[in-house]
Protein backbone atom coordinates (compact mmCIF):
# COMPACT_ATOMS: atom_id res chain seq x y z
CA UNK A 1 0.00 0.00 0.00
CA UNK A 2 1.46 3.29 -0.89
CA UNK A 3 -1.64 5.31 -1.75
CA UNK A 4 -2.92 4.74 1.79
CA UNK A 5 0.28 6.11 3.32
CA UNK A 6 0.13 9.24 1.14
CA UNK A 7 -3.52 9.72 2.07
CA UNK A 8 -2.56 9.80 5.75
CA UNK A 9 -0.08 12.61 4.97
CA UNK A 10 -2.83 14.55 3.14
CA UNK A 11 -5.18 14.20 6.11
CA UNK A 12 -2.50 15.27 8.59
CA UNK A 13 -1.65 18.31 6.42
CA UNK A 14 -5.32 19.32 6.46
CA UNK A 15 -5.28 19.46 10.26
CA UNK A 16 -1.76 20.90 10.56
CA UNK A 17 -1.28 23.45 7.75
CA UNK A 18 1.89 24.83 9.40
CA UNK A 19 3.83 21.64 8.64
CA UNK A 20 5.20 21.57 5.05
CA UNK A 21 3.37 19.04 2.90
CA UNK A 22 6.59 17.72 1.34
CA UNK A 23 7.91 16.69 4.75
CA UNK A 24 4.70 14.80 5.55
CA UNK A 25 4.69 13.07 2.15
CA UNK A 26 8.32 12.04 2.53
CA UNK A 27 7.79 11.15 6.18
CA UNK A 28 4.89 8.83 5.55
CA UNK A 29 7.06 6.81 3.14
CA UNK A 30 10.35 7.17 5.00
CA UNK A 31 10.56 3.51 6.08
CA UNK A 32 10.17 2.37 2.46
CA UNK A 33 12.58 5.05 1.20
CA UNK A 34 15.26 3.70 3.55
CA UNK A 35 14.23 0.17 2.58
CA UNK A 36 15.15 0.77 -1.10
CA UNK A 37 18.97 0.99 -0.72
CA UNK A 38 18.93 -1.84 1.81
CA UNK A 39 16.93 -3.93 -0.64
CA UNK A 40 19.28 -3.12 -3.52
CA UNK A 41 22.28 -4.05 -1.38
CA UNK A 42 20.64 -7.30 -0.27
CA UNK A 43 20.43 -6.43 3.43
CA UNK A 44 16.61 -6.55 3.31
CA UNK A 45 14.76 -8.82 0.92
CA UNK A 46 11.32 -9.50 -0.49
CA UNK A 47 9.75 -12.68 -1.82
CA UNK A 48 6.58 -12.87 -3.84
CA UNK A 49 3.73 -15.22 -3.09
CA UNK A 50 1.05 -16.44 -5.48
CA UNK A 51 0.94 -14.52 -8.74
CA UNK A 52 3.00 -11.62 -7.35
CA UNK A 53 0.03 -9.28 -7.70
CA UNK A 54 -1.27 -6.60 -5.34
CA UNK A 55 0.01 -7.29 -1.81
CA UNK A 56 1.31 -10.71 -2.71
CA UNK A 57 4.69 -10.39 -1.02
CA UNK A 58 6.48 -11.34 2.14
CA UNK A 59 8.86 -8.52 2.95
CA UNK A 60 11.90 -9.23 5.07
CA UNK A 61 12.61 -5.63 6.03
CA UNK A 62 14.01 -6.68 9.38
CA UNK A 63 15.62 -3.34 10.18
CA UNK A 64 13.49 -0.58 8.65
CA UNK A 65 10.17 -2.29 9.38
CA UNK A 66 10.91 -3.77 12.78
CA UNK A 67 8.85 -2.18 15.55
CA UNK A 68 11.89 -0.75 17.30
CA UNK A 69 13.59 0.21 14.04
CA UNK A 70 10.50 2.11 12.87
CA UNK A 71 10.24 3.85 16.25
CA UNK A 72 13.90 4.86 16.05
CA UNK A 73 13.52 6.25 12.52
CA UNK A 74 10.37 8.13 13.58
CA UNK A 75 12.11 9.64 16.60
CA UNK A 76 15.12 10.78 14.55
CA UNK A 77 12.83 12.30 11.90
CA UNK A 78 10.80 13.98 14.65
CA UNK A 79 13.90 15.47 16.27
CA UNK A 80 15.10 16.86 12.91
CA UNK A 81 11.64 18.28 12.15
CA UNK A 82 11.38 19.74 15.65
CA UNK A 83 14.74 21.42 15.22
CA UNK A 84 13.60 22.95 11.89
CA UNK A 85 9.92 23.76 12.47
CA UNK A 86 9.32 23.56 16.21
CA UNK A 87 8.42 20.94 18.80
CA UNK A 88 4.81 20.45 17.69
CA UNK A 89 5.88 19.80 14.09
CA UNK A 90 8.43 17.33 15.43
CA UNK A 91 5.76 15.32 17.25
CA UNK A 92 3.52 15.42 14.18
CA UNK A 93 6.24 14.24 11.81
CA UNK A 94 7.38 11.47 14.16
CA UNK A 95 3.76 10.26 14.33
CA UNK A 96 3.39 10.39 10.55
CA UNK A 97 6.60 8.39 10.05
CA UNK A 98 5.45 5.76 12.54
CA UNK A 99 1.94 5.65 11.01
CA UNK A 100 3.60 3.79 8.13
CA UNK A 101 4.39 0.87 10.45
CA UNK A 102 0.85 0.86 11.89
CA UNK A 103 -0.72 0.63 8.40
CA UNK A 104 1.81 -2.01 7.39
CA UNK A 105 0.92 -3.97 10.53
CA UNK A 106 -2.67 -4.11 9.29
CA UNK A 107 -1.92 -5.29 5.75
CA UNK A 108 1.35 -7.25 5.95
CA UNK A 109 1.49 -10.97 6.42
CA UNK A 110 3.43 -12.02 9.52
CA UNK A 111 6.75 -10.51 8.43
CA UNK A 112 7.26 -7.53 10.76
CA UNK A 113 9.81 -8.23 13.52
CA UNK A 114 9.74 -6.55 16.91
CA UNK A 115 13.50 -5.99 17.23
CA UNK A 116 15.91 -4.98 14.43
CA UNK A 117 17.34 -7.96 12.58
CA UNK A 118 14.65 -10.09 14.26
CA UNK A 119 16.90 -10.22 17.29
CA UNK A 120 15.84 -12.90 19.77
CA UNK A 121 13.71 -14.59 17.11
CA UNK A 122 10.55 -13.11 18.62
CA UNK A 123 7.16 -13.70 16.95
CA UNK A 124 6.67 -11.79 13.68
CA UNK A 125 3.74 -9.38 13.42
CA UNK A 126 1.17 -8.64 10.71
CA UNK A 127 -2.61 -8.95 10.50
CA UNK A 128 -2.42 -10.00 6.85
CA UNK A 129 -5.18 -7.93 5.25
CA UNK A 130 -3.31 -8.33 1.94
CA UNK A 131 -4.59 -11.91 1.88
CA UNK A 132 -7.99 -10.34 1.13
CA UNK A 133 -7.11 -7.86 -1.64
CA UNK A 134 -10.67 -6.51 -1.93
CA UNK A 135 -10.69 -5.55 1.75
CA UNK A 136 -7.19 -4.08 1.55
CA UNK A 137 -8.06 -2.02 -1.54
CA UNK A 138 -11.29 -0.89 0.13
CA UNK A 139 -9.24 0.34 3.10
CA UNK A 140 -6.95 2.29 0.75
CA UNK A 141 -9.93 3.79 -1.09
CA UNK A 142 -11.41 4.85 2.25
CA UNK A 143 -8.11 6.46 3.30
CA UNK A 144 -7.88 8.27 -0.05
CA UNK A 145 -11.45 9.58 0.24
CA UNK A 146 -10.87 10.83 3.79
CA UNK A 147 -7.38 12.26 3.16
CA UNK A 148 -8.30 13.80 -0.20
CA UNK A 149 -11.51 15.43 1.00
CA UNK A 150 -9.94 16.79 4.20
CA UNK A 151 -7.06 18.25 2.15
CA UNK A 152 -9.46 19.80 -0.38
CA UNK A 153 -11.55 21.46 2.33
CA UNK A 154 -8.55 22.75 4.27
CA UNK A 155 -6.87 24.09 1.11
CA UNK A 156 -9.96 26.11 0.26
CA UNK A 157 -10.18 27.33 3.85
CA UNK A 158 -6.57 28.55 3.61
CA UNK A 159 -7.64 30.79 0.71
CA UNK A 160 -9.60 32.80 3.27
CA UNK A 161 -12.57 35.01 2.42
CA UNK A 162 -13.05 37.01 -0.76
CA UNK A 163 -13.73 40.22 1.19
CA UNK A 164 -10.63 39.85 3.39
CA UNK A 165 -8.03 38.47 0.98
CA UNK A 166 -7.24 40.73 -2.03
CA UNK A 167 -5.67 37.77 -3.84
CA UNK A 168 -8.56 35.47 -2.99
CA UNK A 169 -9.29 34.24 -6.52
CA UNK A 170 -5.64 33.46 -7.24
CA UNK A 171 -5.26 31.67 -3.90
CA UNK A 172 -8.48 29.72 -4.43
CA UNK A 173 -7.32 28.71 -7.92
CA UNK A 174 -4.03 27.44 -6.52
CA UNK A 175 -5.85 25.55 -3.76
CA UNK A 176 -8.09 23.84 -6.30
CA UNK A 177 -5.09 23.03 -8.51
CA UNK A 178 -3.14 21.54 -5.59
CA UNK A 179 -6.17 19.48 -4.51
CA UNK A 180 -6.84 18.16 -8.02
CA UNK A 181 -3.21 17.10 -8.53
CA UNK A 182 -3.20 15.49 -5.10
CA UNK A 183 -6.42 13.58 -5.86
CA UNK A 184 -5.16 12.47 -9.28
CA UNK A 185 -1.86 11.20 -7.88
CA UNK A 186 -3.59 9.38 -5.01
CA UNK A 187 -5.88 7.57 -7.45
CA UNK A 188 -3.04 6.89 -9.90
CA UNK A 189 -0.79 5.47 -7.19
CA UNK A 190 -3.58 3.14 -6.06
CA UNK A 191 -4.31 2.01 -9.62
CA UNK A 192 -0.65 1.29 -10.44
CA UNK A 193 -0.20 -0.52 -7.12
CA UNK A 194 -3.37 -2.57 -7.64
CA UNK A 195 -2.45 -3.50 -11.21
CA UNK A 196 1.14 -4.26 -10.20
CA UNK A 197 2.55 -1.71 -12.65
CA UNK A 198 6.17 -0.77 -12.04
Amino acid sequence: MFAGHFAVAAAVKAKNPQVPLWSLMLGTQLLDVIFVPLFVSGVETMETVGSAGYGEAVIHADYTHSLMGALLIAIVAGILAGYRWGRRAGYILASVVFSHWILDLVVHRRDLPILPGNLGDLPLLGFGLWQWPAASIALEVLLILIGGSLYFRSSLARAGRADLNPGYHQTKGRAIMASCVMAALLVLSLVTDTLGIG
Binding site: P20, D32, G167, T171
Partner: peptide
Protein backbone atom coordinates in the same frame (compact mmCIF):
# COMPACT_ATOMS: atom_id res chain seq x y z
CA UNK B 1 10.32 2.04 -9.92
CA UNK B 2 6.78 3.42 -9.58
CA UNK B 3 7.35 3.76 -5.83
CA UNK B 4 10.31 6.11 -6.34
CA UNK B 5 8.36 8.05 -8.99
CA UNK B 6 5.38 8.57 -6.70
CA UNK B 7 7.52 9.57 -3.72
CA UNK B 8 9.17 12.18 -5.95
CA UNK B 9 5.87 13.40 -7.40
CA UNK B 10 4.13 13.69 -4.05
CA UNK B 11 7.10 15.24 -2.32
CA UNK B 12 8.16 17.72 -4.98
CA UNK B 13 5.05 18.44 -7.07
CA UNK B 14 2.39 18.35 -4.35
CA UNK B 15 4.74 20.08 -1.90
CA UNK B 16 5.39 22.87 -4.38
CA UNK B 17 1.74 23.32 -5.36
CA UNK B 18 0.72 23.38 -1.71
CA UNK B 19 3.38 25.95 -0.83
CA UNK B 20 2.07 28.22 -3.63
CA UNK B 21 -1.25 28.51 -1.77
CA UNK B 22 0.50 30.29 1.09
CA UNK B 23 2.84 32.27 -1.18
CA UNK B 24 -0.14 33.85 -2.97
CA UNK B 25 -1.29 35.16 0.41
CA UNK B 26 2.10 36.65 1.16
CA UNK B 27 2.81 34.13 3.93
CA UNK B 28 6.34 32.97 4.63
CA UNK B 29 6.99 29.43 3.42
CA UNK B 30 9.72 27.56 5.25
Amino acid sequence: MSFILFVLLFTVLCGWLDARIDVSQGKDVK
